[in-house]
Write a protein that binds this DNA or RNA. Sequence first.
DNA 1: AATACAATTACGTAGCGTCAAGGTAT
DNA 2: AATACCTTGACGCTACGTAATTGTAT
Lengths: 124, 124
Amino acid sequence: MEYSTKELSALSGLTPRTLRHYDAIGLLRPANVRPSGYRYYSRVEVDRLQQILFYRELGFPLEKIKELLESPDFQREEALQSHLAAIRQKRDHMDLLICNLQKTISTDNERSRKIRRIQTKNDR
Amino acid sequence: MEYSTKELSALSGLTPRTLRHYDAIGLLRPANVRPSGYRYYSRVEVDRLQQILFYRELGFPLEKIKELLESPDFQREEALQSHLAAIRQKRDHMDLLICNLQKTISTDNERSRKIRRIQTKNDR
DNA sequence: AATACAATTACGTAGCGTCAAGGTAT
DNA sequence: AATACCTTGACGCTACGTAATTGTAT
């Protein structure tokens, strides 16, 4: 079975633009390209795309995914570990942001209440 | 007091490049610019920069910060709320990623152990 | 004349979205 | 001849980093 760009797009949920991009950066090359420039993908590419999507969902950058797909198991293991650590840091950072935002919001609210009280007084 | 780009840079911790960028996008305009093109900032700008850094730490994009600095209180309130909601979503997404990464890692480990067992058998 | 600082292009980054213009027909 | 799909540019987005080149002296 061969798939045109559109067909693989439908099959994978990616846009044709994205598939062309993956070709451009050498992440997913079509099995063959007609003289017209039309791209065609076969089984091997579909499988590779599955892998790509798997790592993409885990938040890996495309360049890293390229490396991983050609690395031995133990290197993937390492990559997963360090990626996990990085994500955890980011998450912790977000937790801090959330905390600060909540503080800011409640402080602002308090200020508003005070102002309203003063205004209410002045209104009387 | 007037500050050159370098001085404000030292004062704020931002690079001169960043200050020039903020000027370019209209986020922080110098108080005056000499015929030579040299930028000079005064108190008002220092104060504004403080505000900018405050919102920046909360994760707001520069364009949004520009708006916020010219909006009334209630709009800032709204912005903080919706920003908080957005950040929370991101955090939740990270939590999912972390979860999936952990699963992947432990699954991979199990596979490796099995393989090692088989190899050990074959070695005997 | 040398030093330190200033400025203005302008390209690079990540991952595509979104036209625009023009071929192809698996 | 029309339709639907394909292609290759090329700019846009975020927030600057990083030269390269050249001017200024608060």
